[in-house]
């Protein structure tokens, strides 16, 4: 390989990891939620809330506070989801859609310059108001892991990124370990496979499901924060552009394993970054819409391929989407 093509591959990989982390954090969270038997279609809206939260809080108090607040906001939305879907046993699909709607509407409202300015003023009067009107916030700095970052091709992609990229990878490893190598994980998965049996064995089905939905939603909030301060620190309405729903399909692609979610997410990160690479080479520079369709079309194709590969026997948790009640 020539030096030029080498750096091109390196650039592609770097942006694949950078874009893929949005999907990674969200789909790791959704893996946890769905393994407990609850499907959370609300992550699209929760990501949007995480993004708008990180926009305003970063300006007011800095990055760390922004990430934590985004997680907290996600958790609150998760609590609402769990109350409706686990306690009231309402249809999880409809509950998720309603939460997405609320998240998208509320974030669009809070992100408009007038509202963002007022919020910033009441949070931290010392910060000049015009910052909110610029719709921008400082990006997370890159943290280069010395020595390893010098490794050719993958070094820069994996070890010269911001701290949330590392956190995303760490969370995938951590939650894979918890799910498949600890007692807690076993209880959580049993709730997703056969809640009645888990209940008989002394597992508190309701508590586990609440926790799984809240953890998954908090991670979706962080994914939204990463989307803004780690990836594209300029606020536009509908910033998420269905990425939450794509993350949901990546959970299927990674057959509900946080570890496989790493590969699936970076693959889709690669697809997403092609949007910016292809026009540079001439095609679609004037009208990029066809290239922008790629992630959506590839998501559909992926779902079909999964079905063909698994011959229609997709290994979903057996109780996924079914509310649990002791009476029935």
């Amino acid at each position: 390989m020539t030096l030029e093509s080498l750096s091109f591959v390196e650039a592609i990989l770097t942006s694949a990891v950078s874009a893929g982390t949005i999907y990674l954090i969200a789909s790791v969270g959704e893996c946890v939620t769905e393994r407990a038997g609850v499907i959370n279609l609300g992550i699209e809206g929760i990501m949007a809330m995480g993004a708008v939260t990180s926009f305003i809080i970063t300006l007011a108090y800095g990055h760390l506070a922004a990430i934590l607040t985004a997680a907290l906001v996600g958790a609150v939305f998760g609590l609402l989801h769990a109350f409706l879907s686990v306690s009231l046993r309402l249809n999880q699909i409809v509950v998720g859609l309603a939460i997405t709607w609320l998240g998208l509407g509320l974030s669009a409202f809070m992100g408009t310059p007038e509202v963002a300015r007022d919020l910033l003023k009441s949070l931290n009067p010392a910060v000049p108001e015009y910052l909110a009107e610029l719709k921008q916030a400082p990006r997370l700095p890159e943290v280069r892991v010395e020595l390893i970052a010098g490794v050719p091709i993958v070094g820069r992609a994996l070890f010269s990124q911001n701290v949330l990229v590392y956190a995303g990878l760490a969370s995938a490893l951590l939650f894979w370990f918890i799910l498949f190598r600890t007692r807690w994980g076993l209880s959580l998965r049993s709730v997703g496979e056969n809640p009645a049996l888990a209940d008989t064995a002394g597992v508190n089905v309701f508590a586990v499901r609440y926790l799984a939905v809240i953890v998954g939603s908090a991670l979706a909030g962080v994914a939204g924060a990463y989307l803004f301060i780690g990836y594209q620190p300029f606020w536009v309405e509908n910033l998420t552009r269905s990425r939450g729903f794509i993350a949901l399909s990546l959970v299927i692609l990674s057959s509900w394993s946080p570890l496989r979610a790493i590969a699936a997410s970076f693959l889709f990160g690669g697809v997403e970054s092609l949007q910016f690479r292809i026009p540079l080479r001439g095609f679609g520079a004037e009208t990029p819409q066809l290239i922008m369709m790629l992630p959506y079309v590839i998501t559909i194709v992926t779902l079909v391929l999964i079905s063909l590969a698994s011959r229609g026997r997709i290994p979903a948790p057996a109780a996924l989407g079914k509310p649990y009640s002791r009476e029935e």
């Binding site: 009208t287 922008m292 559909i300 779902l303």
Partner: peptide, 26 residues
């Protein structure tokens, strides 16, 4: 193929909207 219709219909929404954009810009 048993593909989840919630995801496919949502993806097709974006595809159609982008197609309309493509045509009116081109």
């Amino acid at each position: 193929f048993g593909a989840n219709e919630i995801i496919t219909t949502l993806m097709l929404n974006y595809t159609a909207i982008l197609l309309a954009d493509f045509l009116v810009h081109g």
